[in-house]
Write a protein that binds this DNA or RNA. Structure first.
Length: 258
DNA sequence: ATGTCACTCGGAGAGTGA
């Protein structure tokens, strides 16, 4: 079973690239972030023609997350991250697919720092940690995946010294991510490739992709049940070089059948 | 600070976010 995550940076602007990538790699499940479209303008019909059913939580202009699957039932179990009834941003979807619980998330960017956007990021992170604790207590196979907007370590950025003041790399943000792992989650990419330089995002600015000036900010966190089933993982980094690409590349894992 | 995209409104291109 192949599961992917892809921050598309605009589902409608990215549709040709998304369809090309789906055909090329044919994942069983796909989590999308940054749809940047209202609920009613999600291109469900075209995606269905490509063989994928889905659930999505749209929002005008910004944010938005979706879970797609091919030949598998998707049962939605959560829409919006619990813990703040006043939070209107579409950043979290949770569903059961093939007996795995999947949380698709788009953690706030948090820049500029300091400021209200960074405060919102840290509050959202705390709510995510609370939900993650609840999920582990379920004692079932669970994946938390998406754009975490966190560079976990110096290994995950081309020039760490340039990112020290950034909301993706501040010590408290890195610590919050480590705290999440400490709960009992496994970072799938690092589990299989502890020492590799692996990036998932390259800025549109200054030919970042051409210079391989990247960041690793899209992650797969696995609950303990799934760790022994992890057989492969990777980044489809070539997709970042395609015409009209997102600034993120798709990331994927493969799980053995139970 | 810079750079480049995608979005909105409104019907061009500035403003916002990343």
């Amino acid at each position: 079973m192949k599961i992917a995550t892809y921050n598309v940076n605009g589902i409608n602007a990215r549709l040709p690239v998304l369809l090309r990538w789906l055909e090329f790699t044919a994942p069983d499940v796909v989590c999308l972030q940054e749809l940047k479209t209202p609920q009613e303008k999600f291109p469900a019909d075209i995606i269905a023609e490509a063989g994928y059913q889905g659930i999505w939580h749209g929002q005008k202009s910004w944010n938005g997350v979706a879970i797609l699957a091919r030949n598998l039932e998707i049962k939605e179990v959560g829409r919006g991250l619990p813990g703040d009834e006043t939070d209107t941003q579409s950043r979290y979807l949770e569903a059961m697919v093939n007996n795995i619980r999947i949380g698709c998330l788009y953690l706030p960017n948090g820049n500029p720092t300091p400021g209200p956007k960074f405060d919102y990021k840290m509050q959202w992170f705390e709510r995510l940690a609370n939900r993650a604790t609840e999920l582990l207590a379920l004692d079932e196979p669970i994946i938390l995946t998406g754009d975490f907007n966190v560079i976990p370590t110096e290994q995950d950025v081309y020039r760490p010294e340039r990112w020290l003041e950034d909301a993706l790399f501040l010590p408290e943000v890195r610590q919050a991510y480590q705290n999440l792992l400490q709960q009992g989650w496994t970072d799938a990419i690092r589990k299989l490739y502890p020492d590799e330089k692996i990036y998932t995002f390259w800025d549109y600015f200054r030919n970042a992709y051409g210079r391989d000036a990247g960041l690793r900010i899209d992650h797969f966190l696995l609950s303990p049940h799934l760790v022994p089933r992890l057989t492969a993982a990777g980044v489809d980094r070539d997709v970042r070089g395609w015409e009209k690409s997102s600034d993120h590349a798709p990331v994927w894992i493969e799980l053995a059948d139970k």
